[in-house]
């Protein structure tokens, strides 16, 4: 049984069916990329897994337990971390306070908290330099680091990342994704929603392609990277047009 199993999720916004039966798996220690165009349902999938949205039907099984209906804050405690789209850091708090909140559930264990914070600072030395600065004053790349670091503070078994390279320069995007690979190498499972398909596929083990709320393609990242259907569905049919 996989660490995280999603089965036949149907999610509605009012009358609009955003997810029409999404199923996916993530094994321990692998990076699973979720690709697809804007509005395809990638973010909705992540938000449903982390309990921010309630599916109409379907199950999310984490370590053998169905977590649909469990409150979002409790899901974090089970070991699912989520870095939301647009970073959503607490702009009026300092960098350090943001990180502390990431370890909210272990707030009484001071030593453990400090150890994790030290690990995050080691991963992102830039954050250590700016720990007393208000988070809202950080640059885009630093904010992304903070968002990831904040999620790592809960020491998640599965880390879900929603468009971590959004709005970053190619160089920064690459360095962020490299960090993601490092995190996965340490044994954390990563669910990665990413617009930058090539870079996502380069670091991922497997990938799913979502289109209008359905999974249209799945497989090993290295194979999907050369699959022309990925380009068609996601990269926008360069191929389709030139051959037409």
């Amino acid at each position: 049984m996989a660490l995280l199993e999603v089965r036949d999720l149907h999610v509605f916004y009012g009358n609009i069916e955003a997810l029409k039966g999404i199923s996916l798996d993530a094994e321990e220690g692998e990076i699973v990329a979720i690709l697809g165009g804007n509005g395809a349902g990638k973010t909705t999938t992540l938000r449903t897994i982390s309990g921010l949205l309630r599916p109409r039907t379907g199950t999310v099984t984490f370590q053998g337990r169905n977590i649909v209906g469990v409150a979002a804050h409790a899901i974090v405690g089970l070991g699912l971390g989520h870095v939301p789209e647009g970073r959503r850091i607490f702009t009026i708090l300092s960098v350090e306070e943001n990180l502390n909140l990431g370890a909210y559930l272990i707030r009484s264990q001071g030593a453990l908290l400090r150890a994790r914070k030290a690990a995050v600072y080691q991963l992102f030395p830039r954050l250590a330099e700016r720990k007393h600065q208000l988070a809202g004053t950080l640059s885009g790349g630093e904010q992304q680091m903070l968002a990831i670091g904040r999620a790592l503070m809960s020491d998640p078994k599965v880390l879900m990342l929603d468009e971590p390279s959004l709005g970053l320069s190619p160089l920064l995007a690459r360095s962020v994704l490299k960090t993601v690979r490092e995190v996965a190498n340490d044994g954390t499972t990563v669910l990665l929603v990413e617009q930058n398909a090539r870079q996502a596929l380069a670091i991922a083990d497997r990938a799913y392609v979502i289109e209008t709320g359905r999974i249209v393609l799945e497989g090993k990242a290295s194979i999907l990277a050369t699959d022309e259907r990925v380009q068609k569905a996601y990269l926008g049919g360069f191929e389709a047009m030139t051959s037409a």
């Binding site: 190619p170 995007a173 690459r174 930058n196 398909a197 090539r198 870079q199 380069a202 990277a225 050369t226 022309e228 380009q231 990269l235 926008g236 360069f238 191929e239």
Partner: peptide, 18 residues
């Protein structure tokens, strides 16, 4: 344009594919 959309990655087979 190809680079902007797909990201630069010299050693990648994708460049050839595109």
């Amino acid at each position: 344009v190809i680079e902007a959309y797909l990201g630069r990655d010299e050693g990648d087979e994708m460049v050839e594919a595109i």
